[in-house]
């Protein structure tokens, strides 16, 4: 019980992380996968920020008071840049989704797999049976 009390924040963050992870690996709609990736990514950010928290600390903006305790600024820096990089890579994902829809007419993962298979079969047939 004391174990859970000491790490309760991490446990809740892991539950969030796995909800996002499931959305990413389950076959389904690609926009939903991107949202799942966003949830997964934000949960990882929360884990980092939780590690940097000090009980009784304040935000790492110096006040000039020597007695004040500051939370660790290093995770903040890493995550700050990761958020902006995250949105840039998410945009690449959305751009690919748009092009996939334009080419195949679907953004459902399972339908897409069937279409790609039938395309490959058609190519193979065209190669092996010359008209």
């Amino acid at each position: 019980m004391s174990e859970i009390a000491a790490h309760w924040n991490y446990y809740l963050v892991i539950i969030l992380m796995m909800l996002g992870f499931y959305a990413v690996i389950a076959r389904g709609n690609m926009v939903k996968k991107m949202v799942g990736l966003n949830i997964f990514q934000t949960s990882v950010f929360m884990l980092y920020i939780s590690v940097g928290k000090i009980n009784g600390g304040t935000a790492p903006i110096l006040t000039g008071d020597p007695a004040s305790v500051y939370s660790n600024p290093l995770p903040h820096v890493l995550i700050l840049t990761a958020i902006v990089v995250g949105v840039a890579t998410t945009a690449v994902g959305y751009a690919l989704i748009i092009r996939i829809y334009e080419s195949y007419g679907t953004i459902e993962d399972d339908e897409l797999a069937v279409l790609i298979d039938s395309d490959e079969d058609a190519c193979e047939r065209a190669n092996t049976e010359p008209a």
């Binding site: 304040t58 500051y70 903040h76 958020i83 902006v84």
Partner: peptide, 17 residues
């Protein structure tokens, strides 16, 4: 993130995310 003292991160997450 604000509760966890990361004000800069909170700012970015609100604007970007």
């Amino acid at each position: 993130f604000v509760v966890l003292d990361a004000v800069d991160v909170a700012f970015t997450e609100a604007a970007v995310g």
